[in-house]
Each structure stands twice: as C-alpha cells, then as structure tokens.
Amino acid sequence: MNCNLTFLKAKLLFLLLLLTACQPLGQAPEQRWQHAVEGAYAANISNDAKFSVVSSIHHGISLWDLDNNALKYNWSQQQNSADNLVLVADIADNNSHAIIANRHDFSLWNIENGQSEGFWSITESTIRDVAVSNNGDYLLVGQSNGKVVHITIANGRRLEFLGHQEKINAVDMLPNGRIALSGSNDFVAYVWDTVSGQVIYRFNHPSRVTMVALDPKGRYAFTADSKKAANIWDLKTGKLISKLKYFNRQEVFSAVQFSPDGTQLLTGAPSRKVSIWDIATGERLTSWRVLPRDDIRPAGAVVYSVAFRDNNQVITESSSGYAELWQVNKQ
C-alpha cells in the first residue's frame, strides 16, 4: 500500500513538473499600466510595441503611447451597447493608421493627427476581423457570411474574396496590402492575391481555423485551428516549416506575432498564457501568464495582443485592462 502511495505521489509530481516546466513560477511583469477601468473588450499593439489601441465601455477607443505610457487620443465609435462595442482592431505596420470595428461598422484613423479618415457600415452580415496596410491605403474586413472584403481607399475599389464556405474567424495582410491571409470555420486558411483574388496557397486543418497571422516581412504565415494543429508556413514556398509542440490536448490562441529577426513566434491565449516558440522547431522556449484584475473571481484574462519590444522584452494587452511589460528569460 505504501509503495503504491509513493508511486502515485511520484507520478503526480512528475506530471506537475511536466506541466510547469515552461512556466516560470511567480513571474511578474516589470511594469504594469492600467489602460481600461473595469477591463477591455479589445486591444491591438503595434508591431514595434510603440502604440496600442484599446476598447472599453468607459473610455471608448484609446490610443496609448507605450514608450511613455501616455494617452495619445480618445476616439469615438459608439460604445453604448453590446452591439456597438469595438471588438477588433489593427495598427498598420508603419504606425500610420489604425482600423477599429464593432459588429457592423468600421473606421480608419490617422495616428499622426488623430483624425478619422473614413467610416463604413455593412448590413449583410457581421464583422469578424480587420486589418490595415501601411499608410491606410488598404483595408481588409472578414465577415460572418464567409466573405473577406479588400478595400482600396484611393478609389473605393472593393474586391470580395469568396473562397471560404463558412464564417471568417481571422484575417491578416502584408504591410503593402498585396497579400492577404484568412481563416474560417470551413477548416481552411487561404493565402490570396488582393489584386486578382486568386488563391496562392490553401492550408487545410482538421477543424475550424481560429487564428491566422502573417510575418510583416513576408517570410512566414501562421495558422491554427480549434483542436491541435498550429502551423508555421514558408510564405515564399507554401511549405510547412514547423508545428507548434505542446503537451495539452489543445491550445487556442488569441494573439500572435513574429519576432523581427524571424527566429521566434510570440503567442497569447484566452487562458492568460503567453508563450515564445522557436520557429524552426516549433518548440516552446518559455511561457508565463498575464495578471488578472484583482476583483475578478475566478481569476482570468484573455490576452488580446502581444509584441516584442526588443530581444529581451515583451508587451501584452489583455482583457484585464492592463498593459504589461515582461522581461523574457528564455530557457
């Protein structure tokens, strides 16, 4: 009996060590800044970690200067009901513009002067995700009816990509607006040309595709589904580079960014978890969890956006309403 008990304790200890091997115990952020009282509904950090746009019921849409933790602008897009809440946002790679959207409306904002450069509404379906190119020249809108619309601001041209059969979950676009990536409930992610609408690559998954991302430098694409497949692809050849390796039955991602040097992938999850992965191997290098709000029980937070500040620091924005700066200690 004692031998069995000792074996059981040893087994439990091994499982505990296995689950926490990549999670530094007690890791706390270097700095923590509150950007939304009573939590945020959406947030997006710029690729260089200099700005973040945050949606909340109390402050509307706030643009923050992360270098100085200074409020730069407050933008107004109706936030007075659940239907009007801004739930998706994107900042251009060169920090020129931001796009924000609720379920039926989206708007383009100039980050240099804080002015609105357009407001649009859709009636045929709801908005699921958005992206904006450098200088606000092109917008990408993924919809619940399976359409992805690419808009050229200069002439109003609208190209509808109709390759998907079901609801769009995530979209992304290269900084020049020429290549788009979209993922859907139809188990497929497509890389496609925004001028011709032609498919460049089709990435099949075993379940609905919930997250996609493009490396701004055009080297990689990331696609992940709702079960156990999270893949990094070579954007030049369409070949699989690696699959993210994790012990859990599944991992769901709510934020993704490639490192500037092209060696690592940064992810955030609805479980507060932030991870850094090796692109070449798919191995997890380290992970930690963002802090929840003190008044939330059970403790929880969705990681909305992640970004590398440099090789040793990462910034996160989460539903807690806080931005957090982390010192990265890769194992």
Rank of each mutant, 00 (worst) to 15 (best):
R32D: 01
V290W: 13
K227R: 13
W288T: 00
L244S: 10
H97Y: 09
N113E: 06
F7G: 08
V290I: 10
T263P: 02
I179Q: 04
K50M: 07
P260V: 00
S81Q: 04
A42S: 15
R293I: 01
M211G: 03
T286L: 02
R32T: 07
F203N: 04
S76M: 09
N135L: 11
T237W: 02
P298G: 09
A89N: 14
W288V: 01
D215G: 03
N113H: 00
L13A: 08
K245R: 10
W64F: 07
Q31I: 03
K167A: 12
L265Y: 01
M173I: 15
P29N: 09
Y246L: 03
F187D: 15
L108V: 08
V130C: 06
H164A: 12
A49G: 05
D65C: 03
V252M: 11
N44T: 13
T6K: 11
A21S: 10
G39W: 01
V130G: 09
W288E: 04
Q327E: 01
G60A: 11
Q77G: 06
R272S: 02
P260N: 11
S55R: 14
R284P: 01
Q115D: 15
S319P: 02
A255P: 04
I61P: 05
E124Q: 13
L266V: 01
S254W: 07
D90L: 00
D172G: 07
S271R: 06
V188S: 08
K273I: 03
W192K: 00
R297T: 13
P292L: 05
I122R: 03
W120D: 09
K9L: 00
I100P: 01
L159A: 04
W326D: 06
A230R: 11
D93S: 08
Y201H: 11
G26F: 05
L265N: 09
S116F: 09
Q264Y: 12
Q27C: 02
H164W: 08
N134T: 11
T152Q: 13
A92D: 13
K50E: 09
S184P: 13
I151D: 06
N176D: 15
I99A: 07
L17V: 00
N204I: 10
D65K: 07
I232V: 14
G118M: 05
H58E: 09
A255N: 08
W33K: 03
S52T: 12
K167N: 15
N74W: 04
F203C: 02
L87V: 14
T126E: 14
N80H: 14
I153N: 07
V256Y: 06
A43Y: 06
N102R: 05
V328F: 06
I61A: 00
I296E: 15
D261F: 05
Q34W: 05
S46F: 04
I99M: 09
Q198Y: 13
I276Q: 12
C3H: 15
